[in-house]
Design a protein around this nucleic acid. Sequence first.
RNA 1: GCGGGUGUAGCUCAAUGGUAGAGCGUCGGCCUUCCAAGCCGAAUGUGAGGGUUCGAUUCCCUUCACCCGCUCCA
Length: 551
Amino acid sequence: MTTQAPQGAPAVKSMDKIVSLCRRRGFLFQSSEIYGGLNGFWDYGPLGVELKRNIKQAWWHDMVTSHNELVAPPGAPAPYAMVGLDTTIIMHPQVWKVSGHYDLFHDMMVDCRQTKRRYRYDQVVGRWVECRGQRVFVTVDGEGPTVEQDLLQRALKFFNLRSKQADQLHWDGPVQPLSSVEDRSQVLGPDAKELGTLTEPREFNLMFKTYVGALAGEDSAAFLRPETAQGIFVNFKNVLDSTRVKIPFGIAQVGKSFRNEITPRYFTFRSREFEQMEIEFFCHPDQSQQWYQYWRNRRFQWYVSLGLASERLRLREHGPEELSHYSTGTADIEYAFPFLPPGKFGELEGIAHRGDFDLRSHMEGKLDPNTNPLQVELGPDGKPRWRGSGKDLTYRDETTGQRYVPHVVEPSAGADRAALAFLCEAYDEDQAPDDKGKLQSRTVMRFHPRLAPIKVAVFPLVKKEGMVEIARDIYAQLKKHTTCFYDEKGAVGRRYRRQDEAGTPFCITVDGQTLDDRTVTIRDRDTLKQYRVKIDQCWDEIQARLQAPEP
RNA sequence: GCGGGUGUAGCUCAAUGGUAGAGCGUCGGCCUUCCAAGCCGAAUGUGAGGGUUCGAUUCCCUUCACCCGCUCCA
C-alpha cells in the first residue's frame, strides 16, 4: 500500500488541545488530583517522565559528559572543563541570607483594599498633615528625591485643593515610615481615594519554610532552595580542591527548586515545585564578556538542535533598565507559548553575566546590588547585614600567579518549561488516509527523536500465522537497546495513530512477507513512509534514523 | 491576594428538584494482511464538604481546582 506525505497547513496550536492530550496520553497530571489538586504542582505521567528524563539527559550529555575539555567547541574562546554536582535542597539558612533571596523573598507587604494594589511595607512612607480640622497620614510608595513633592500632591488631591492653596495644609512632623503609624484608619494609601484602606502588614514568603530536626522553632528554620545555583557557589572551593579543574570551567547541576509563587498559572509554566538545569561558568574577568556571548549562543542553539527551530523561539537581550549594574549582560531564551497572547514570549532560560557578585557575597557577606563598585550591605550596627562565610573563594592562576575572584556566567534553564515548550512545539494536526483512502485528521506529536518518550513500537500486522511470535521476539531484542512499545490489539491503523499521539518516531510491523524473507517494515511518524529492512538489521536502521532523522 | 468565569465518564458535550445520556476513547470477544473499518459485549460519573428538602448533579453556603484580567514573577 502506498502512503502519502502529510498535507495541509500547520495546525493552529490550541493550549486546550495540548493540555487535553497531555492528560489523555499520560504526559502530565495535576498533583493530588483525586483530592481536588494542589495549585502550582504537577505530576509527570508515564510518557511525561520519559520526555522530561530525555530532556535532562540530553542537557547533561550535551553540556557535561560529552564535552571534550581538550578542544574549544565552535564559538568558544578557549577549551574549558565541565563537571557536575548534586547538592541538597535544604541548605544552611545563611546561604539564602547572603544570596539575597531571604530579603527579596521575605517581604512584609500591605495591600490596599480599594485599589487592590500591594506595597512593600518598608517602602511606604508618609507624613501627617492637617487641614480643616482633619488629621491624615498621607503616603507614597517608595523613597526618593521627590517624596515631599509627591506627598504634597497626594495631600492636595485628597483635600481637593489647588496648588496655590498649599498653605492650607499644616504638616506635622517629618516624613516617616508607615510602620510608625499605629492607627491605620487615618492613613491614606499611596493610590487610594479614601482613608484606612491599607491592610495590616503580612509576611509574604516566596521561599518554602521548614524546620530541621523534630523540634520546630525559629532556631531550626530552614528553606527549600529557590534555585540550584547557590549549591554550586558554596561548593566552588570543594570542586577546585578535589578535581584539579582550572579556570575557565563550568559546574552543572540539575535538580528541584521551590518557589511559593503568588499566582501559579499557565499549566506547568509557573509551578511552585520545578526543576532547573543550571551551569555556573567561572572565568577570568577579562574574558567574561566573550564567555557570556558564547553561552548565549550555545544555549540558544541547543534548543534549536532539539526542534525548537521555529519563529516561536527567540533570544532576547535585556535592556539596561532590566540589568543589575554588576551584570554586563543578561539574555533570555524565550518561547511563544500558545497560552500567551500573540506576540508574547515566555522565558525558558536566562543567561546572566553575574560578575563576582555571588562568590564575593559568600566570602565577604551579602553585597548590596545597588552599590558600584559592589560593597557589603551593612546593618544598623555598621556590621554586615548578613555575614559571609569568611572563606577564601578566590582563584590563583598557577601560570601567571594572579589571584582573583572569578566572574560567573550563568545559563539557568527550566526543565519543566523546556518540557512544556517541546510539548507545544511537537503538537500538530495533519491529514492521514484511512483504510478507504479518505483523508482523516490526525494528531501527532512531532518530538525530536532524542526526546521522544518511546523510540519505536512493534506490531504484528494481524494475530495470525506466527506474526505475533516474531514481533514479540523483535520487541524483546529492541528492549535491550531503547524504550519501545509492543501492541497487537485491534487494527494496525489504530495502533499507528496511538503512537502518533505519543510521538513515537518509528513503528516496526511484522507482516506476511516477514514470514517469507525475514524482513519487516519501518514506518516513519512524520512522512508515513515505510521502509523494508531485514529483522537482523532493524536496530541498526532505527539507530541510524534516530540520530539523523529525515528532514 | 483581588475581580470575573467554569467545574457532569479518560476526552468533547447533553439532561434533570425524583433511576444521569450520547459520540469518541478504553477494555474483552469475533472478524481483520498496513494507517482511528465492522459486529457483539463491558467498565467508568455530577471536583470536595456542609446546608435546605421526603428527595439535591440541579437551590444556598464554604472550600478546592482550572481559565481570563489585575497583582507578583530570582
